[in-house]
Amino acid sequence: MTTALPEDRLWHLFEMMLLMRRFEESVVKMNVENHFTGHYHLYIGQEATGAAAIAQLEARDTITATHRNHGHVIARGAEPGPALAEIMGRAGGLSLGRGGTIHLSDPALGFLSTSGVVGGSISLGAGGAFARKMKKDGSVHMACFGDSALEEGVAYEALNISSLWKLPIVLLCENNSADAWDKSRGGYTSLVHAANDLRSIPGAMGIPSIRIDGTEVDEVHAAVAEAIAHCRSGKGPMFIEAMTRRWAGSAPLWPELSTGVTDLKMATGEAPMSGEHKAWYEENDPVLKLARRLLKTSPQAKDRMWELDRKAIARMQAAEKFAIDSPMPAPQTALEHVFA
């Protein structure tokens, strides 16, 4: 049985999850207002996984992430203003507007890359883990990837070499294929794999694996703590499959804020949970789940929750202004920061 986290740790994670959620809602707002164009992916519904996992990394550790990367970057401590400016292609962005949403990254925080190539974060992660091992300082690498990454050939090569060389890599598979739409409904084809249990893939290579509920911060925290300790002790990689149900807004080809701007009154009971997304609000929204849990801790919990939300909203309002006010990169800088 997973041990419940201390109350102060839960509040810390809730604060981060709330900022991650408000950040994604701002991304949608900026897109709707035509501040940027092009495709993007959202991390809504998976905040408990990213927050509880990444919070346990130390400054010396490194990370690679996927195209659904905004949550990882915010959870690692990136400033929302420059992160939002990067998504909008502005010169004030984390990568001076060169990376955009799909490759949103902050090398100063240990991000080697966030890759739009499916499976890319596993292969790049193996390289990162090899570098960690060569450092001989007990540092680890965390590779965050989706379930479909395990369809790619490079994933098998990376898993194999990670196991053979006992690389210190936490393999965090965020499986959100449940409730995904297929092409007939106007969505993406989700996981197509002959394996009926993804844990059997790393298992065949001698990599210990565990499956958890990705919306429960205690389960995520415990599994990642075990995996990090396993890696730091020189025992090689560990695989974690964090299960979440696909947020409805990520089901179509283009993301949409189908569940609306998050209303914490649904956690306090002041607003009804109704409509077609009622079950998601009740069972699958990690922010609302943790909010309801924290509201039971003390009579002051409600006021504390509202204060944290006010801070998150104010921080994102400032981030939006920073991003909008940031200029586009100057045309004469187009060939700067390129290899060839």
Rank of each mutant, 00 (worst) to 15 (best):
A4W: 00
P6W: 01
D8P: 07
W11D: 00
H12I: 13
H12A: 15
L13D: 09
M17A: 07
R22W: 06
F23V: 11
V27E: 07
F36P: 02
H41F: 13
L42R: 06
Y43G: 12
G45N: 01
Q46P: 01
A51S: 07
A51M: 00
A52K: 04
E58M: 14
I63R: 00
H70Q: 09
H70F: 11
A75L: 01
G77P: 04
E86I: 11
L94M: 05
G99D: 12
A108K: 14
L109F: 07
S115G: 07
V117D: 04
V118F: 07
G120C: 02
S123L: 14
R132Y: 03
K135N: 15
K136L: 10
V140C: 10
H141L: 10
M142C: 06
M142R: 03
M142L: 12
D147L: 02
S148W: 07
G153K: 06
Y156S: 09
N160S: 14
S162T: 03
S162G: 04
S163A: 15
S163T: 06
L164I: 15
L164H: 11
L171D: 06
C173D: 08
E174Q: 14
W181R: 09
D182S: 13
K183E: 11
S190F: 02
A195I: 06
A195W: 11
S200R: 15
I201W: 04
A204C: 11
E219Q: 12
V220T: 09
H221G: 03
A222D: 14
V224C: 04
E226H: 14
A229K: 15
H230P: 10
C231T: 00
C231A: 13
K235S: 11
P237L: 06
M238S: 12
I240V: 12
R246A: 04
G249C: 08
A251W: 05
P252L: 02
P255N: 09
M266D: 00
M266R: 11
M273E: 08
S274D: 14
E282F: 08
E282R: 13
V287G: 03
L288N: 00
E307L: 13
L308T: 13
D309Q: 13
D309T: 12
A314G: 01
A314T: 00
A323T: 02
D325L: 10
D325N: 11
S326C: 08
T333W: 11
E336H: 08
A340I: 10
